[in-house]
Nucleic acid binder design. Structure first.
Length: 338
DNA sequence: AAGAAGAACAACCGCACGGGT
DNA sequence: CACCCGTGCGGTTGTTCTTCT
């Protein structure tokens, strides 16, 4: 195993630029590409320590680097940031990656956002080199988390083909969590037994029968028509939450009252999905109390939605998760979504 | 010991999106 | 509205390292 802390062992380097017809990411010739040297790292780190991140396009010149801004940003984000954790992926991290991938598909930045110290690139590489193969060896399709059919194609290889690149990398087409599962209208049961994933063209429903948990993940939620634009983020900017009343059950799409949950409640909710743990009655009561603040008590059904914006920044990635409960019996949810 | 094959992963690439003008 | 810029994302590439034969 190579030492991951060294900057001189990686591929995709200058040779690639000179031997292929590809145009480099930066049009300017004369910029250095390929592995970073310790001297370059030092220049970049010192500059960012002094001036801060951002303005990547002009940063190289200001920092005295013969690199393009993209390259600088990548190096900083994936390697040089103090918060980046190096070293082997721990078993619990691996387990979390698997669970998150089952929920979110190839949303590497979202997955990385839930795993402290790990970058999307690292998780993506780990998935491609370890986990996808591991799943295949277990007879599980790494894209859908469904059992592999004998005649099915090798999705890992298929997804690596150049032909698939454009469509598969398109964000507008990539908002369906769990990738292919959500586009095929399938119904499935995970290997653990109790979690069902039911999906159609736009939505993904997760139903944990043993825990009486039902979640709805809308794969087409990246618009502002449901009050997202005014959604508050939680303290660290990684998540947001709103409550929505549903006077006519779940058919009322009006976000007449928007309120915001706490980070704790959101995290509990998300973790309950990730970990398939019981979302405790106390947590439900917390949610109900918040709902009571804004929804007239005559409305029996309340939908609670959470929108994760992990990654945040200029690309506001979100995954909507909502559950509905009857305020008269908040523990047992109503699941008219399904 | 040497070559081949496979594994690992940093880096590159094209594209999409939001904000500013 | 159109364009530009900055930023970030997911897919892919290509070199090095490790293991196998």
């Amino acid at each position: 195993m190579r030492n991951p802390s060294t900057a001189t062992s990686a591929g995709g380097g200058p040779q690639a630029a000179t031997t292929t017809a590809k145009t480099p990411c930066c049009s300017k010739v004369g910029l250095k590409r390929g592995p970073w040297t310790p001297e370059e790292d030092e220049l970049l780190v010192n500059y960012i320590k002094k001036e801060g991140e951002g303005r990547w396009r002009t940063l190289p010149k200001r920092a005295g680097l013969l690199r393009c801004g993209k390259s600088c940003r990548l190096r900083w984000m994936n390697y040089l940031r103090p918060s980046v954790k190096r070293g082997q992926i721990a078993p619990d991290e691996e387990d979390l990656i698997l669970r998150l991938h089952r929920l979110l598909g190839n949303r590497w930045s979202l997955i990385a956002g839930r795993i402290p110290g790990r970058t999307d690139n690292e998780i993506k590489n780990y998935w491609n080199t370890h986990l996808s193969k591991k799943l295949i060896s277990q007879g599980i399709d790494p894209r859908t988390h469904k059992p592999l059919k004998p005649e099915s194609v090798d999705h890992h290889k298929a997804s690596s083909s150049k032909a698939n690149r454009k469509t598969s990398s398109s964000k507008s087409n990539n908002n369906n969590p769990a990738g292919a599962a959500a586009s095929s209208g399938v119904e499935e049961t995970n290997s653990g037994g109790s979690t069902q994933i039911i999906s159609n063209e736009q939505n993904l429903y997760i139903e944990n029968t043993s825990l009486d948990h039902h979640y709805h993940i809308n794969g087409n939620n990246n618009n502002a028509s449901h009050g997202y634009s005014s959604l508050l983020n939680c303290g660290d900017g990684t998540c947001g939450m709103y409550l929505r009343s549903n006077v006519q059950g779940l058919n009322n799409e009006e976000d007449e009252d928007i309120n915001y949950g706490t980070d704790d409640v959101f995290s509990s909710f998300l973790n309950s999905i990730i970990n398939e743990e019981a979302f405790t009655s106390q947590q439900h009561q917390q949610m109900q109390q918040q709902a009571d603040l804004i929804v007239p008590s005559s409305d029996p059904l309340v939908s609670i939605s959470t929108a994760s914006t992990i990654g945040g920044g200029s690309s506001w990635e979100s995954v909507l998760m909502s559950s509905t409960f009857n305020r008269n019996d908040p523990i047992k949810k109503v699941n008219d979504h399904l």
